[in-house]
Computed example of a mutant assay.
Amino acid sequence: MKFKLFLILFTFSIIKILGTGQQPDKIIINNKEYDLLNNPLDAYFEKHPDDHPIYGPKIRKKTEKELMIPFSTSNYRGYIATFKIENNTLSLVDLKLLDLDSGKDRYISVFKKIFGDRKVDLNYSGILVIPTGELLESAHFGYSYLYDKYHLMTIQRDAVIKEKELNKDEFIRFKVDQFKAYKNTEEYKTEVKNHLKSWNGDKKFELSRKNTRGMSKKEIAQLKKEYEFPPSEEHINNFLFVLINPDFVIIDY
Results as ranks from 00 to 15, higher is better:
residue 155 I to F: 02
residue 27 I to L: 06
residue 55 Y to I: 09
residue 110 V to N: 02
residue 94 D to G: 08
residue 162 K to T: 00
residue 88 N to Q: 13
residue 92 L to F: 12
residue 115 F to P: 06
residue 138 S to G: 14
residue 130 I to M: 05
residue 57 P to L: 12
residue 133 G to W: 05
residue 124 Y to C: 01
residue 79 Y to K: 01
residue 31 N to V: 02
residue 150 Y to K: 05
residue 80 I to C: 01
residue 56 G to T: 15
residue 90 L to I: 10
residue 67 L to E: 09
residue 63 T to G: 15
residue 79 Y to D: 00
residue 30 N to F: 10
residue 96 K to S: 04
residue 134 E to D: 11
residue 52 H to L: 08
residue 81 A to F: 05
residue 125 S to R: 04
residue 114 I to R: 07
residue 103 G to N: 06
residue 33 E to K: 10
residue 163 E to S: 04
residue 75 N to C: 05
residue 55 Y to H: 14
residue 64 E to I: 13
residue 53 P to Y: 07
residue 80 I to R: 01
residue 44 Y to W: 10
residue 119 K to G: 02
residue 157 R to C: 11
residue 159 A to N: 11
residue 26 K to H: 12
residue 112 K to M: 06
residue 119 K to E: 15
residue 152 L to T: 02
residue 109 S to P: 07
residue 151 H to P: 00
residue 129 V to C: 07
residue 128 L to D: 03
residue 71 F to Y: 15
residue 86 E to P: 11
residue 58 K to W: 10
residue 41 L to S: 08
residue 130 I to D: 00
residue 99 D to I: 00
residue 77 R to M: 02
residue 49 P to C: 15
residue 133 G to N: 08
residue 121 D to V: 12
residue 93 V to D: 08
residue 126 G to K: 02
residue 51 D to K: 14
residue 147 Y to K: 07
residue 164 K to R: 09
residue 65 K to M: 07
residue 99 D to N: 09
residue 114 I to L: 12
residue 75 N to T: 02
residue 70 P to Q: 06
residue 137 E to T: 14
residue 95 L to F: 12
residue 29 I to E: 01
residue 26 K to Q: 10
residue 96 K to P: 02
residue 155 I to D: 02
residue 106 R to Y: 12
residue 92 L to K: 09
residue 56 G to M: 13
residue 110 V to T: 05
residue 43 A to R: 03
residue 135 L to T: 09
residue 107 Y to C: 05
residue 67 L to K: 15
residue 159 A to D: 08
residue 65 K to N: 10
residue 154 T to Y: 00
residue 111 F to R: 08
residue 123 N to A: 11
residue 23 Q to I: 09
residue 45 F to P: 08
residue 37 L to F: 10
residue 113 K to D: 15
residue 105 D to T: 07
residue 132 T to N: 06
residue 94 D to F: 05
residue 135 L to M: 14
residue 31 N to D: 15
residue 38 N to W: 01
residue 78 G to K: 06
residue 142 G to K: 07
residue 142 G to Y: 04
residue 103 G to K: 03
residue 158 D to S: 08
residue 83 F to V: 05
residue 133 G to Y: 05
residue 87 N to S: 15
residue 92 L to V: 13
residue 155 I to C: 06
residue 104 K to M: 06
residue 90 L to F: 08
residue 74 S to K: 13
residue 151 H to K: 12
residue 104 K to F: 03
residue 46 E to Y: 09
residue 141 F to A: 12
residue 42 D to E: 14
residue 78 G to A: 05
residue 163 E to K: 00
residue 136 L to G: 09
residue 108 I to C: 01
residue 53 P to Q: 04
residue 157 R to M: 12
residue 38 N to V: 03
residue 138 S to K: 13
residue 153 M to V: 14
